[in-house]
Simulated scan of single mutants.
Amino acid sequence: MTSVAVKARVTGRVQGVAFRTWARAEAVRHGLSGWIRNEPDGSVRALLMGPAASVADMVRRMGRGPGAASVKDVLTERTDPEPGVSGFRIVG
């Protein structure tokens, strides 16, 4: 099973709609590690690390988001895994 690390930037109405809490629960359910945070420009940024198929599925799920969200776009880029990151947490 190939492990990957992806940084994602989610735009649209994604702040104030429990997006980070929803994403953390989804990531934990899929066995991913990383973090998620709100950005000053109204977007949400996340680091997703884990099996390639699980990361890809999480990116797809983030494209829909929780019920109150209105996702415009999910931009992703492959990155190096961040050492010392375990579990999935909300960082801001």
Rank of each mutant, 00 (worst) to 15 (best):
M1Q: 13
M1D: 12
M1V: 14
T2L: 13
V4G: 06
V4C: 12
A5N: 09
V6I: 15
K7V: 15
K7W: 07
A8F: 05
A8R: 05
R9W: 12
V10D: 10
T11E: 12
G12I: 09
G12F: 10
R13Q: 15
R13P: 08
V14G: 09
V14T: 11
V14Q: 10
G16W: 08
V17G: 05
A18P: 01
A18F: 15
A18Y: 15
A18C: 13
F19P: 02
R20F: 07
R20K: 11
R20H: 09
T21W: 14
T21V: 12
A23F: 11
A25Q: 13
A25D: 14
E26C: 08
E26W: 04
E26P: 00
A27G: 04
V28H: 01
R29P: 00
H30M: 11
H30W: 10
L32P: 02
L32K: 04
G34Q: 08
G34N: 06
G34K: 06
G34T: 07
W35Y: 13
W35S: 12
I36V: 15
R37K: 14
R37Q: 10
N38W: 11
N38A: 11
E39Y: 04
P40D: 13
D41R: 08
D41F: 12
G42H: 13
S43G: 14
S43N: 11
V44Q: 08
A46H: 03
A46Q: 02
L47R: 08
L48S: 09
L48A: 12
M49H: 02
M49A: 13
G50H: 11
P51Y: 05
P51R: 15
A52N: 00
A52H: 04
A52P: 00
A52F: 00
S54K: 14
S54W: 03
V55P: 01
A56S: 15
M58E: 06
M58D: 06
M58C: 08
V59S: 09
V59K: 06
V59Y: 08
R60Y: 00
R61Y: 03
M62P: 02
G65K: 03
A68Y: 05
A68P: 01
A68W: 09
A69L: 00
A69P: 01
A69Y: 02
S70N: 08
V71T: 02
V71S: 02
D73H: 13
D73I: 00
V74L: 02
V74C: 03
L75V: 12
L75E: 13
T76H: 01
E77I: 00
T79P: 00
D80H: 10
P83T: 12
P83G: 10
G84D: 11
G84E: 07
V85G: 05
V85D: 04
R89E: 13
I90G: 10
I90Y: 07
I90F: 09
V91Q: 04
V91W: 03
G92N: 15
